[in-house]
Design a protein around this nucleic acid. Structure first.
Length: 188
DNA sequence: GCTTTGATGCACT
DNA sequence: GTGCATCAAAGCG
């Protein structure tokens, strides 16, 4: 697990096709990772760019930890920390394909009649669907209640590499990856 | 202390 | 496609 997370850009590619499993009192929730973005300390768009602070300190910790942050006053986003200790790298999970516990995801999102893709096709949406919040910041993703499970690797041909979404600085970097033709990607 | 601004999502035109 | 909700950190003085 930690071996494939030794840097953010290759880690973002490797995380595609892995599953994210979340245990809740209501039941087990599983999603397939279909879209990711890489962030690193040398990247002006990254939280770690200006050094370690109280908020981003998990990014400077061990690879394989969860970095969960709160933004826009109402949203949470989930990252997987990569790199060696104190390198300040992480991969943002931007979209999932729901596999198990879909009814529970609907309840968590308060969208009873919504289409499957609306549940998890955005970084804040998937956190709401899987009940991920600040209490999971710093959590070890090899252990319950939130675990990464390696799956079949995605062939390089089926991965699209492009620019990241919603950032203003360093927007030239092609650090966003998603599975080609997957309907659960937030934006083609 | 006070101001600015988001790695966003949703309702609305 | 455009505007807004809503607040914690960062950045500055």
């Amino acid at each position: 697990m930690v071996e494939i997370l030794k840097n953010a850009v290759s880690g973002a590619r490797e995380l595609l096709g892995m599953r994210l499993a979340r245990n809740t009192p209501q039941g087990r929730l599983v999603g397939l990772i279909v879209e990711t973005e890489a962030y690193s300390y040398e990247d002006a768009a990254s939280h770690s760019y200006r050094g370690q602070t109280a908020r981003n300190s998990v990014m400077f910790g061990l690879a394989g930890l969860a970095y969960v942050y709160f933004t826009y006053g109402l949203h949470y986003c989930l990252n997987v920390v990569t790199g060696t200790t104190s390198s300040g790298e992480a991969v943002l999970i931007r979209a999932l394909e729901p596999l198990e516990g879909i009814d529970i995801m609907r309840q968590n999102r308060h969208l009873q009649g919504a289409s499957l893709q609306e549940l998890t096709n955005g970084p804040a949406k998937l956190c709401q669907a899987l009940k991920i919040d600040k209490t999971l910041n710093g959590h070890d993703l090899t252990k319950p209640p939130l675990r990464l499970i390696p799956g079949a690797p995605i062939s390089r041909k089926a991965i699209v590499q492009t620019t990241r979404i919603g950032i203003t600085s360093d927007s030239h970097r092609l650090w966003r990856f998603y599975i080609k033709d997957n309907p659960f990607v937030s934006k083609p």
